[in-house]
Nucleic acid binder design. Structure first.
Lengths: 206, 206, 206, 206
DNA sequence: CATGAATGAGCCTTCATTCAT
DNA sequence: TATGAATGAAGGCTCATTCAT
């Protein structure tokens, strides 16, 4: 039960799921990619359904870590601070999504449509993200640099939706670019990021 | 080849896919739900992969029709016009999504993770929606009621993302409420709709 | 129950079986080729197994008729008579096989490997042919122009084998030539015919 | 992937095909006869179509080996030599066909009517046999003990036809005798063999 | 009489999972 | 501990046959 093998299996599974989706990936695929016997898989994971949870765990862990690294968790005290903070988070996410194109692809083909259970979990993650965002907004209201009548919960939901649009765009681009790691400059992503920020802070009206 | 049977199969398939997802729905499931022999299915559709396309066709047809009904295609000439128009579209979508909770669920479990082909198709639909939205924004700039320096394409993408957030929320709610047609008042959805509009037109800053 | 329809079905079945074989021909194929509903088939024949018997009946009827036409059934009284008779029979068979390339093909793909029952029947037809040939030989011995110590039964079997070689060659050629009726000159067939006769009457030794 | 299992499957398939024919044999039949799960079949062979090729390979291998054992490949130098050689080959074939009655049955029900592809292959085998026979005849002409004006190709075809008659007779007898290995004395076969030889070397005329 | 919609038995094939080595 | 041979549940799909219209 070498811990390294466990990691390798998670990585291989992540790769397979991102490339072919959960349902079109067989245990044999994962084992073959790793060069191990497919019986070995079952020494590390209960069953096929089991691994996806661990892949998701692992992915979220990596994403959160990456976000935490780039982002001071310090709360913004002014609108400009917040604006900058949002920019940093957006850039951070962009960086993560583009550092490994398999991430957005996996979120699609490896996460959605697998299971009612997993759906629930993903919804719950989204809830957390919403709550986090709502917290930021709440903080902004308290500090006085955001509109007092802001519906924080639903506004947070809307903001997260814009981020999702980014993830989806990445997933599509990743699909177009194939699975290779050739990082085309994330120009599109950056522009979307800017558009989101302007929408939030400047509105669209003249 | 009664056209009615064809419709029934599409409906039953829609129902099954929305409830259990594409991969956990067998042809026998669809046939059983309809009370027909499973061989009959193959008199109307080529194979399992074939029906999903028709279900998607049908769904999009219904959605577009519903949207068209509620919405004057007339272009907005003032910001208030546009604001109202956005409100109508949002309400329209809300109404559709809540009229049949299977719709958002199907978009998830019956559409994502099926196929590279279908993914491509869904992306392409998203593209169209983006382009449509961008067109509205473009028009607004020309008419002078929207910021001239708006990045229409990416802003459209962001706006569509917010709508997606609504779809996702619906899908989750539908899951919680089961597949029955008990229309809990779409209070949440209405509030999200308002939050999106305020975000677009008023921004979040004080 | 028009008799003509019955004939048409037999013809269409013959065509399908010759082209695609018994197992790769569906009732729908036969009906479609004829432009009738495939339910109609069952008004004329019990089931799929039933039709093959009628096709075989029909085919043998046609072959025997053709042979009878070309051949005086009169018994040969001299070796030269017999030689000529054998030649006529051989030419007759050649003509039949080449008049419709589907015949040898059908004997293969529509007759062998269908059924234990049909195998038995074909064997029985072969028996009759053997017996007929043996009768000719017997007659020749009685008349004194054939060797008295001839094993008529097995010699007849051997002679029939040579004819079978011709049928097989035809079947292969027919396959090569496609199903069209382009009668390449049956040069090969004529030469085989001659070789058989020389083998019978002159032997191979110098 | 025990090689023995592979052999067992080939044998079982051979048995089933010989008894019931290709189309009336299911993978489950083969597996059941062997007492293995039917999934196991697919660990050793691609699909149902795949196995028939291997069965044919195996059968031809065995036949050729048996023929080679009994037969000096040395060329005949005199007519008597050749006569003896033909006798040995005929006896060899007889022995093979009767050593396992499933062989002639398989050649019928397991080989004909399966596939255009397999038909082609069988024709090609027949070609080789014809060519081999023609070679012997050619050699006889060169050595001077066969008629110089012999049409070697078509004569070879005719000779092969007589052998086929033997195969067919065997197949029928095997069917009558059931699939058991009770070797009724191949009296019939021997007599056919003699009749063929006399036909070739002595002709039928007095 | 003709039709073709409906049916379900039956078969091929995949693949997650187990377990003896 | 690692392996991969074996397994059989499960599901997609075909097509001969029936029968209401």
């Amino acid at each position: 039960m070498r811990e390294e093998t466990r990691r390798d299996i998670i990585d291989a599974a992540f790769d397979c799921f991102a490339t072919n989706g959960y349902h079109d990936t067989s245990i044999a695929d994962i084992a073959t990619r790793l060069g191990i016997g497919h019986g070995t898989f079952y020494r590390y994971f209960q069953n096929k359904r089991d691994i996806i949870d661990h892949v998701v765990d692992d992915l979220f862990g990596r994403v959160l870590e990456a976000l935490a690294t780039d982002n001071a968790p310090a709360a913004a005290e002014t609108l400009d601070d917040y604006r900058a903070q949002v920019g940093r988070i957006a850039d951070g996410l962009t960086g993560i999504l583009y550092s490994d194109p398999r991430i957005p692809r996996f979120l699609f083909t490896g996460t959605v449509g697998v299971d009612a259970e997993l759906n629930k979990r993903m919804f719950s993650v989204l809830d957390s993200a919403n709550a986090l965002t709502a917290g930021y907004l709440e903080h902004g209201i308290e500090r006085g640099y955001l509109r007092a009548d802001l519906d924080v919960d639903h506004t947070a939901q809307a903001v997260m939706g814009m981020l999702l649009a980014g993830v989806i765009a990445c997933a599509r681009d990743a699909g177009d670019r194939g699975s290779a790691d050739d990082s085309g400059p994330p120009e599109q992503q950056r522009e979307l990021s800017i558009a989101i920020q302007r929408l939030m802070f400047d509105g669209i009206a003249r």
